[in-house]
Every structure is written in structure tokens, then in C-alpha cells.
Nucleic acid binder design. Sequence first.
DNA 1: GGTTGATCATAA
DNA 2: TTATGATCAACC
Length: 222
Amino acid sequence: MMNSQPNSIAELMQRANDMAGVSLGDIANEHQLNVPDNLKRDKGWIGQLIEMELGATAGSKPQQDFLHLGVELKTIPIDQSGRPIETTYVTVAPLTNIQGLTWENSVVFHKLQQVLWIPVQGDRSIPVANRKIGTPVLWSPNPEQLTALQQDWEEIMEMIALGQVEKVTARHGEALQLRPKAANSHSLTESIAENGLIKLSNPRGFYLKINFTHQILTNAFG
DNA sequence: GGTTGATCATAA
DNA sequence: TTATGATCAACC
């Protein structure tokens, strides 16, 4: 059962606030869904469940989840102290046809304009069904965060443009990092070669580092 | 214990 | 294959 699209940010936030303190098992029951014992084979299960509850538009378009509201939805697993357990996937990294692409025109920039963070207990010792949803955070990057993101993005994209995508490791970047994003390490997609022509590389995605998302949550909760 | 590179499910 | 939703698990 997919809930209807929220018509305003206020409506979206009301739904999000109503989920706070509720367990994943309770939400799943509302939608008559079974809860997996673990997430090994259901890595996106929590995200999909929350999308359903909040009425996000299903689909795999490279756009915000609530395009009409200008809001991207992200669930984020946190430990007992409220620190994110995992990095946050943002989007696939473009590896070709990037001449003239600017930060302001990038998918990363657009998706991070406004994000609704839904913290969820992520400690693996807690059964998935018992994990509780936390207080939502509607976030937009402040000037400092925006600058940090832009610097990382531009540095990484320059490497890609120069045919150096394989030389970019997850250690690059303070806020944003580039990592594999594929079915496996053998997946291939077109990328720019050092001679400017096309070569094949493992697909990459942009991720927000934990320290960065931790700061977002910390700022929101004082 | 935190991070990096690898991986899983699914839709179009 | 590429996009979505992410977490797993080996490694330092």
C-alpha cells in the first residue's frame, strides 16, 4: 500500500514526525509487509518502506523523491549515540559527456538542495522489526557545507575529466567521496580515457561521508 | 572500530 | 545497462 503524495512540505513533515518513535515492524504491518531477518539481501528495504509511508514517488529517475516539493528523502542508520553507521549514497557519477558541466548544474547539487533525513536505529544487534525511527530533519546545506561539497565535487570531476577515475579513491574529499556503485566489481560503463577517448570503468557513485552527515544531525539536534 | 571497496534486490 | 534503495564485510 503506497500512501498518497504529500501536497506540501508541512504535510510531508507531519507524516515524518508521526513516524518518530515508531518501529519498522509497525510500519511494515500497516503495509502488510514481512520484515526481513537481516538486510544482507534487502539492503534498500528500510528506504523503500519509508518511501511508501511518506508517499514518495516510486521509480528510478535521477531526481528528487518529492520533485514537486524540491525534497530528497534519505533514511540514515544511526548507532546508540546518534552517529551515522554508514555513508549516504547520493547519485551515480557521470563519467562521460561532462564537458561544460558545472557544480550548479550537477545532480549532486540539485539532490542536496533540500534533504529530509529520517534517522533509523541501525545497530545490527537490534532485530530489524524492533528498530525505531527517529526525529526527522529537513536540511539544506549552509554556505560552509555547500563550499565543502563543491570543492570535493570539482576536484573529483576534474580527475574524471582527465581520465583518472581509477585514481580517485574513497579517501578523496572531505564531505563527498567517490566509490564503486555497481552490481559488482566486474560491471563496466563508459568513461573518459586519458587520451580523451572512451574506455570502460567500474561505475561510481557519490556518497556523503559520515562526519558530514553526523554534523547535519548534530546541528539539527543541538 | 572506522573506512574502503564490493555487493544485493529490483524496475525500466 | 543504468538508475533507485542502500548495507555488507574485508581491511587497515
